[in-house]
Design a protein around this nucleic acid. Sequence first.
DNA 1: TCCTTATATCGTACTTTTACGATATAATAA
DNA 2: TTATTATATCGTAAAAGTACGATATAAGGA
Lengths: 112, 112
Amino acid sequence: MEDETTKLAKMLKALGNPVRLQILTYLASTHSCITNDIVQQIPLAQSTVSQHLKVLRQAGLILGEIEGPATCYCLSAQGFSWLRQHLTLTLDGLLITQEPNLIQLDIRTETE
Amino acid sequence: MEDETTKLAKMLKALGNPVRLQILTYLASTHSCITNDIVQQIPLAQSTVSQHLKVLRQAGLILGEIEGPATCYCLSAQGFSWLRQHLTLTLDGLLITQEPNLIQLDIRTETE
DNA sequence: TCCTTATATCGTACTTTTACGATATAATAA
DNA sequence: TTATTATATCGTAAAAGTACGATATAAGGA
């Protein structure tokens, strides 16, 4: 079985890639969400896009439905609402315990 | 310079790790946030924890302030508010465009 | 000065991710 | 049947992430 923290991390990890954020943004903007449409939008190989879609699907962020020879993808409302709920429980909650307007101070060494 | 999508992805990627989520949760729960306290909480080597802290710092999620020989860490309110804002603009927004109660349909092959 | 404490960084090994081209599969059209 | 289209998966190479022990540095105490 999978820990809730692990599942949350998996979702956030899936979100933590510019290409996948682009895909999600595109999926949000259209209802004709055939894989090939996405491939046209992203300047990467079809196999690479398919791999990203798999990551998003396994994280529970998108849904795939077969339509003839193609697959139609859309965002998973369930997945995003789960994410939002758990983000509210953790990350949003974190901020409340902090003072506002903290300024970044020197760190011992900062080479990168 | 860094793209906004890239910065957002960097933050989400930093969040997408169970250990780092644990660290953030601990940081939220206490104000005595010396590195060594965190090391006590996490069953990993000190160097590994330090590495995770670096990732969180470079993503703009935490702040480090030197206090004598130690470093005091806390959450970055600025960082989290930036994140919340951009999540609202993108991910939260995405859900609105979708129909509710979508059900996961068969995917062509699902081996994992 | 020497020792201890706290912490960052280095070197390294292993794993995972990311990208590609090639290929297999499934549905439809000719 | 054969060809075409759409897409997932395989094999692979390069890059990044994750963990460790060892080490360097900086501050403070004996």
